[in-house]
Design a protein around this nucleic acid. Structure first.
Lengths: 214, 214
DNA sequence: CGTTGAACTCTACAAGCGTTGAATTAAGGC
DNA sequence: GCCTTAATTCAACGCTTGTAGAGTTCAACG
């Protein structure tokens, strides 16, 4: 009875522990839940069942850990492959594709972490911009939109409107929890929002003069 | 040379100092810049040129200060009055109205503070929902949309789509800083986004079955 | 003029943070 | 079977944070 609470012994564990991956997982979860500032190394270590110093040993600083945790496990090909069912419009497929990717288990925490952190961290904002550009532009290209537009600035503008709407959708659905948006299914949202997105991609849209040189 | 740095004497100041308002202003600025967690009482006090304890004396806890700072100076009537020029479509007017209000000096810091804080604070998320509902729904009503729809659930769904798009616009413009969105004028954005919003309000939109009882 | 109360600063505490260095234990190559 | 190297915990530092209490100066009222 010399030791009451049986603490974990120090020193290396037997076998492959997979601890560094567990730490990354815990980090993604905490960043997704509390954002960059709200998540603490101690909290992450706690979830991973590990001493805080170990987190530091593996990843150095908190910033580096964030960068490592938010790095995508390459945009999951399976998810994209399973989508894009024919028969529906381009915009609709884009919306359902984006939502499905963002809500897929492999990506959700990363996306949420970036979204929450981007509000207060310039670094995270940059990463989120890249992330959205990656997923949305990739999806656009893969689904075959925006390819006919020669004017680069106009294409940029149109794509930004799409991104704007989709990010708003993610925000009201995943973070803010607007009832009407959370209770709708991905398919329903695709049907409702799809046409608006499609108009931005290929429809008649007011483009600022300065972007369309005579 | 007994005292190097001339510190402010303690005790009450002469005349009306208006300090409590200065603190609220500073708080709005800091919350807008860093979000709820990122803003510190010491930082706010510093901007207001005041001892941190005074902030506490006036507003009690940080949460209470946040609530006090984020309370709207009643939606500025001047701003709303100066908008809604005839000749453009309903959606276009809604977009320009919302953007103009949110970017007006009286409201901008409050809105940004709520937007940044809502990502990590449930309290702030609630306030943001109310805020958006207030400004957007107020504008919708004032501009005369959505009044013909009898079905309450459908109206809710349509309005949520509008809010979704507008919040996305605010986010990419004010927080994320997407170049194509920040460099456009409010008028240009109104022309581009307006039709999409108008469609949600009065157009032909796919409404989930469960919302439209036969 | 004296007293009460509000505005204001000082000092300090307890808690939590990211980070560090040293100690302990196991794995892997020679 | 030793010896290096990696994984792991421990204890602690220095800093910042929100908050509390006590003290100081002024305004206002009788």
């Amino acid at each position: 009875m010399t030791e009451r609470k049986p603490r974990a012994r120090s020193g290396r564990r037997s076998g492959e522990s997979g601890t560094s991956e567990a730490i990354l997982d815990a980090a993604r979860g905490q960043f997704a839940e509390h954002g960059y500032q709200g998540a603490t190394i101690r909290g992450i270590a706690g979830v991973a069942g590990v001493d805080p110093a170990l987190v530091h040993h593996f990843y150095g600083t908190k910033e580096a850990l964030f960068a490592a945790a938010m790095r995508l496990p390459v945009v999951p090909g399976e998810v994209i492959a399973g989508i894009a069912k024919e028969g529906t419009g381009l915009g609709e497929r884009l919306v359902t594709t984006a939502l499905t990717i963002w809500e897929s288990p492999e990506v959700k925490d990363t996306f949420l972490g970036l979204l929450r952190s981007a509000m207060t961290s310039e670094q995270a904002a940059l990463m989120l911009r890249e992330f959205v550009a990656d997923t949305v532009l990739t999806a656009i290209v893969r689904l075959g939109g925006l390819d006919r537009i020669g004017n680069q600035a106009e294409a940029q503008y149109r794509a930004s409107m799409v991104a704007t709407h989709l990010i708003g959708l993610a925000l009201t659905r995943l973070v803010l929890g607007l009832p009407a948006v959370t209770s709708a299914s991905v398919t329903e949202l695709g049907a409702t929002v799809g046409p608006a997105v499609e108009r931005y991609l290929t429809g008649e849209v007011a483009i600022p003069d300065r972007l369309t040189p005579t």
